[in-house]
Simulated scan of single mutants.
Amino acid sequence: MTSPETAGWQPLSRRDISTREEALFEGVPNHLVRPLKAWIAEYLDGHPKLTGRVALRMKVVLDTPDPEQLVEAVAVGDPSLLLDVVDVVLHLDRGLWWELDVAGPEPLMEAGAADWIPDFGWPKGSKGAAVESLDDMLMDAGSAFEVDWRHKRLQRRVDGSVTAAAEQAMGMDAGRHLQTAWSAVYGRQPDPSKAYDEAIRAVEAAAIPVMLPKGKTETLGKVLTHLTDADRKWELAIAGPSDGSVAPLIEMIRLLWKGHVARHAGGPNFRPQRQDEAQMAVHLAATLVHWFTTGAVRPRTSG
Rank of each mutant, 00 (worst) to 15 (best):
V54Y: 01
R57N: 12
M58R: 13
K59F: 13
V60Y: 01
V61L: 07
T64D: 05
P65I: 07
D66K: 10
P67D: 11
Q69I: 03
Q69Y: 07
V71D: 05
E72Q: 12
V74T: 02
V76F: 02
G77Q: 08
D78Q: 12
P79N: 02
P79F: 03
S80A: 15
L81D: 14
L81S: 10
L83A: 03
V86N: 03
V88I: 15
V89S: 09
V89T: 14
L90S: 07
H91Y: 13
H91P: 03
L92K: 10
L92H: 08
R94H: 13
G95P: 03
G95D: 14
L96R: 04
L96I: 09
L96V: 09
W97C: 06
W97N: 06
W98A: 13
L100C: 08
V102C: 06
G104Q: 12
E106N: 09
E106D: 12
P107V: 05
L108V: 08
M109K: 12
M109R: 14
E110P: 02
E110I: 08
A111T: 02
G112H: 05
G112V: 06
G112T: 06
A114C: 05
A114W: 06
D115K: 11
I117H: 06
I117F: 08
P118E: 14
P118W: 10
P118K: 04
D119H: 12
D119I: 04
G121P: 02
P123E: 08
S126I: 06
S126Q: 05
A130Q: 15
E132W: 08
S133A: 15
S133F: 00
S133Q: 07
L134G: 01
L134K: 00
D135T: 02
L138R: 00
L138I: 04
L138D: 00
M139W: 07
M139G: 15
A141H: 05
F145M: 13
E146M: 14
V147Q: 01
V147L: 03
V147T: 09
